[in-house]
Design a protein around this nucleic acid. Structure first.
Lengths: 367, 367
DNA sequence: CTGTTAGCGCATTCAT
DNA sequence: ATGAATGCGCTAACAG
C-alpha cells in the first residue's frame, strides 16, 4: 500500500497543461472537453476525461473565475444560528443552490462584534460570490445599498425592509401585519382580557409590522395593551424568560396578564419556561401564542399555538428569485408575499388538559 | 440624488491599474499599499488608500488566490442543520474563523441525494477552500481520504472515525465511551430495572462508542438490555417518537421499560413527546436521559437529564487546530479528547414534581 | 522605497 | 474539430 507514482501527497497540483500533454492534445481542447463543449469530437473528449480523471485533475476555481467573472457561489447572510428559524431557511436555500451548482458561503451574525460583521459584508464584493441572500435580523445596513450599487444581486428573505431599499431588491416576505392581527383575534376569541406582549428589537421591520397588526387589531376589539404589559429584548429565549417572569411574576392574579403574544416562537420558548418556573398553568393561568411554527412547537411538551409562516416555501422562493436574478441582472425587482395562518395548539386551548408528563413541575430544576 | 459620476451602478469593476493611474503610482505599489507592505512610505500609502476608497476599489479575490494559492476560506461539512447540535458547532467555528480572516463555506448534508453531496465534497478541491472541518454524521467517506491525499487540511470534529483515517487527520472528540457509562450508571442509581435505548444509525462511530460504554456498564451493573428494548433510526425526534411509542406503548406496566437512554438530545425530544402523548409521567413512569446538553434541555418544560459534551469548547479547539494546520501543514495530526459530565435534571429525578404547566396533557394535541 | 517584468491556470478569440 | 496566442487582475522576484 505504498504511495503509487500518481501524486506525491498534495503538492504540485496538476494543471490543464499537464493533462493536455499527457493526452497529446492542446490545453484549449482540455478546457473544452471538460466543459462539454459540443465542438470537441466524442473520442477526443472521452480520452481527455479519462486522462484527467487518472491524473486527479480538477479545474482551478480561481483561474476560471478570473476570466468568467463568475464564482458559482452565493452568500447567505443570516442572524445567530441558535435562533432555529435560520437553520430551516439556510438548509432549504442551501439545498436549492447546491442543486443548481452553487456553493454557499455563510455569514452568520454572532450578535457581538458588529464592526467585524459589517466588514465581512463589505468583503463580499471582490468576486467572492455571485449573489447574496440576506436574512440577517440586523436592520439592512448601508452596506447592502453599497452592494446593490456595485451591481450585486441581492434577495432579502423574511425581512421587511426600509422603504428606500424596498424598491431596489428582490424580496420574499409573509404578511406580518395580518399575522399580528391573527394573534390578536385569537387571544380575543379565547377570552383574553389582559393581553401582554414580549417583543423583539424595535428596529426589526418584520417584527414592527407584526406588532402593528397586533396592536391595531387589539384596539379594534376593544382590548388594551398598556405599555406596562410589554417587554422587549433580543430575539431569544432569555428575552421570553425574563420578560414573562417580570410580566407574570410579581402581580396579583387579578392584575396578571392572562395572555402572552411572543413575537417569535424562539421567544415563546422562554415564556413557557417562565410559566413553568412560576408554577403557572398554560393556558389556564396564562395563554401563550408564538410566531413561526417551528418544528418543535408541535411537540407535546411545548404544544404552542403560533402563527405559521411557510418558511420552507419562502426559502425556496428566495432561491428561485436569486437564480433568476443572477441569470438576468436587469429584471425588475420582485416582491413575493406569502400568507400566514394560525395554528392552534394547547397553549391557548382553555379547558383542555396540558402538560406532557404528569404533575406540575414548579421551580427551577437545573442541577 | 442622481447617480454621481463615480460609478455607473455595478458595471466595469475598477482594477488596481485604474487606482495606480489615478494615484500616479505603479500597480505594484497599489498592491503593496493595500496589503500594508512596510516597504511603502506612509504618504504614498495614504494616497493610494484614499484614491482606492474613492474609486470603490476592492481587490479581486480570484486573481489574488490564483497566485497566492490561498483562498481565505474554509469549508464546514455538516449534517442536517435541523439537528440543533450543528448550529452550535457551526456558529462557534464561524465566529473563530471570521475572527482570523477566513470566510466559511457551508456544506450541509440534507440527508437525501447522497450522490449530490459526495459530488459537492469532491468539488472542494480546486482551490475553493484552504481547509475543511468535517462534522457530518455520514461515515467518513473515501472522498475524505482523497482530500487528505490531495494535501488538504482536514479536521474532524465530534466524530469518531474509522481506524484507518484516525491517524491521518486532526480530531476533536469527547469521551463517548465514558458518556455511555455515565448514562448507564445514572439509570442504575435511580433504580431503573428495565432500561431501554433509542439509538441512531449503526454506522455512526461516535454513537457506536456511546453505545458500547452504555452496554458494558449496564452489564457490569447486572442490568440487561435485551434487543427488544432497543430501537434504532436516524438522529431526529421522529426516531425518538416512534421508538418510544413502540417501546412504551403496547406493553403492560410490569414489562414496560422504566428508563430510556436516547443517544442524543434531539432523539430524546421525540421520546418526551411520546411519553406525553401516551400520558406517561416522566420520570415516574419512565425516566429519560439524553446526550449533548443542548440549550433547551434546561427549559422547564423539557428538563432533560443528559450527558454534557462541551460543544462550544470543542468547536473552538477544532478551529484552533485548523488554523494551526493551515499555518503549518506538516505538523503531526493531533487528537484532542474532552471530558463529558452528567447533568441531572427532572427527567430522571424520581419523586420530584415535573411538568411545566399544570395538569397532564394527554393525547395528540396538534390542531 | 518604487517601477518593471513575469507568470498563476484557465477561457476565449482567431486561425487553420 | 483542434491548436496557437492572448489576457483576466493580481503577487512576487528582481532591478534600480
Amino acid at each position: 500500500m505504498h504511495d503509487s507514482a500518481v501524486t506525491p501527497p498534495g503538492r504540485e497540483p496538476v494543471t490543464g497543461y499537464d493533462v493536455a500533454r499527457a493526452a497529446g492534445v492542446s490545453q484549449s481542447t482540455v478546457s473544452r472537453a471538460l466543459r462539454g463543449d459540443a465542438r470537441v469530437v466524442p473520442e477526443t473528449r472521452e480520452l481527455v476525461l479519462r486522462v484527467a480523471r487518472e491524473m486527479g485533475y480538477v479545474v482551478n476555481a480561481s483561474a476560471r473565475s478570473l476570466i468568467t467573472r463568475r464564482t458559482s457561489s452565493v452568500a447567505i447572510v443570516s442572524g445567530d444560528l441558535r435562533n432555529p428559524s435560520y437553520p430551516v431557511l439556510i438548509g432549504t436555500l442551501q439545498k436549492q443552490f447546491h442543486a443548481h451548482g452553487y456553493r454557499v458561503v455563510l455569514l452568520s451574525d454572532h450578535e457581538e462584534e458588529s464592526g467585524e460583521f459589517e466588514h465581512s459584508l463589505g468583503g463580499l464584493r471582490g468576486g467572492i460570490v455571485d449573489g447574496i441572500v440576506y436574512i440577517s435580523a440586523r436592520t439592512t445596513s448601508p452596506v447592502v445599498a453599497d452592494l446593490l450599487d456595485a451591481g450585486m444581486p441581492v434577495v432579502v428573505l423574511n425581512r421587511d425592509v426600509d422603504a428606500e431599499l424596498g424598491g431596489r431588491v428582490d424580496r420574499v416576505t409573509s404578511d406580518n401585519v395580518e399575522g399580528g392581527r391573527l394573534a390578536a383575534r385569537h387571544l380575543h376569541a379565547i377570552g383574553a382580557r389582559r393581553p401582554a406582549m414580549v417583543a423583539g428589537p424595535r428596529d426589526n421591520p418584520s417584527l414592527a409590522r407584526r406588532e402593528r397588526g397586533f396592536r391595531s387589531e387589539l384596539a379594534a376589539l376593544g382590548l388594551p395593551l398598556p405599555r406596562q404589559r410589554v417587554r422587549r429584548g433580543q430575539v431569544d429565549p432569555r428575552t421570553g424568560l425574563e420578560g414573562a417572569l417580570s410580566l407574570l411574576g410579581d402581580t396579583a392574579a387579578g392584575e396578571r396578564p392572562d395572555a402572552l403574544f411572543c413575537q417569535t416562537d424562539y421567544i415563546a420558548l422562554g415564556a413557557l419556561d417562565a410559566a413553568g418556573r412560576l408554577g403557572l398553568s398554560v393556558p389556564d393561568d396564562v395563554a401563550v401564542i408564538g410566531y413561526n411554527d417551528l418544528d418543535w412547537a408541535g411537540w407535546s411538551m411545548i404544544d404552542l399555538t403560533t402563527v405559521r409562516q411557510p418558511l420552507v416555501e419562502m426559502a425556496e422562493a428566495a432561491a428561485s428569485a436569486m437564480l433568476a436574478r443572477m441569470a438576468n441582472p436587469d429584471l425588475p425587482p420582485v416582491h413575493r408575499v406569502f400568507d400566514v395562518e394560525l395554528v392552534e395548539r394547547g397553549s391557548t386551548r382553555r379547558g383542555a388538559r396540558r402538560g406532557g408528563a404528569g404533575g406540575a413541575r414548579g421551580g427551577v430544576t437545573h442541577s
